[in-house]
Design a protein around this nucleic acid. Sequence first.
DNA 1: ATTACTGCAAAGGATTTGCATGTGA
DNA 2: TCACATGCAAATCCTTTGCAGTAAT
Lengths: 132, 132
Amino acid sequence: MRERGFRVTPQRMLILDAICEGEEHTSFDEIYERVQSKAPGINQATLYRTLDFLCELRLVVSAEIDGRTVFEIAGETPHHHLVCRRCGAIQELADYHFLELRTHLLREHGFKADINHLAITGLCSQCTQSGT
Amino acid sequence: MRERGFRVTPQRMLILDAICEGEEHTSFDEIYERVQSKAPGINQATLYRTLDFLCELRLVVSAEIDGRTVFEIAGETPHHHLVCRRCGAIQELADYHFLELRTHLLREHGFKADINHLAITGLCSQCTQSGT
DNA sequence: ATTACTGCAAAGGATTTGCATGTGA
DNA sequence: TCACATGCAAATCCTTTGCAGTAAT
C-alpha cells in the first residue's frame, strides 16, 4: 500500500472502504454512518482529520455541492456535476469538456487546475420550463 | 428601481452600495464593516438575510473561495478566478473560455449553467516550481 | 521506543431561527 | 393597515483544537 511515511490504521482503512462503497459522491454523514455501523467507536474528529488527510494525499477528492462537502475516491475517471439550484437534481458531466480549458490554463497561466470534481450550478431543463 | 413585489429598505440600499464599493469580490465581513460604518445599527442576521435575498434576485452573485463566501454585483462582465490551493493567490480568468461549455450544456443537456463567478482551485506557477 | 494517530470533550465560528417590534407600500 | 423586514438573542450546525492515552513502525 501507500507507505509514504504515514501510518495505516484500521480507522483509515475503514474510512477509505466506506468512501469506496458509495456509488457516487458521499457526504460526511453517510461516511460517518457507514463507518459507525462497522466500528461504532470511531469519532467524528477522526473522520474529519482522516478526510483531510486523504484529500491531501489525493486519494480522495471532495467537492462542494450546495453548501455540503461530498467525497469520492480519486483516480477514477474525472467527472463533474450539474446541480440544479431549484430542484437539486444532479446530472453527471464528462470530463472532456474541460480538457481544453485545463491545457489553456497550464500554458497561458502556468496554473495546474484541480478540475477533478467540479459542481456547476444552474437550472435543469425541467425547471427551466416551469418559469424561473 | 426593482419593485418586483419586494420592499426597498434603507438596509437593503446600504448593503447593495457596500457591495458596489468593492472593486472585486467582497467578503461578508468587509460588507458588514462598510455597512456598519454608515449605519452602526445594522444586524448581522439582516445582512445574512439580505445577501441571500439579493442573490436570489440575481442582483448579486456569490462564490466560495477557500471556504469563504464572497459577493459581487451581478451583471458586470462575468469572470472567474484561479485560486492557488497552496499560497492562496488569486488570478482573474476571462469568461470566454466558458462560452463553448455553456452553449454545449444548454444544447445537449438543456441545462442553464450559472457560470458567472467560478472559482477554480489548483496550483499557481510559483507554487508549481517549488515542489508540490 | 518513538511519535503519529485517535478519542474525548470543549471551544470556535458561521449561519439560522423565533419572536417582538418597526416600517414601507 | 398589514404583511414584510429588521433587531436581538438564543439556538444550531459544522468543524477544529488541546490534551491525554493508544498503537503503528
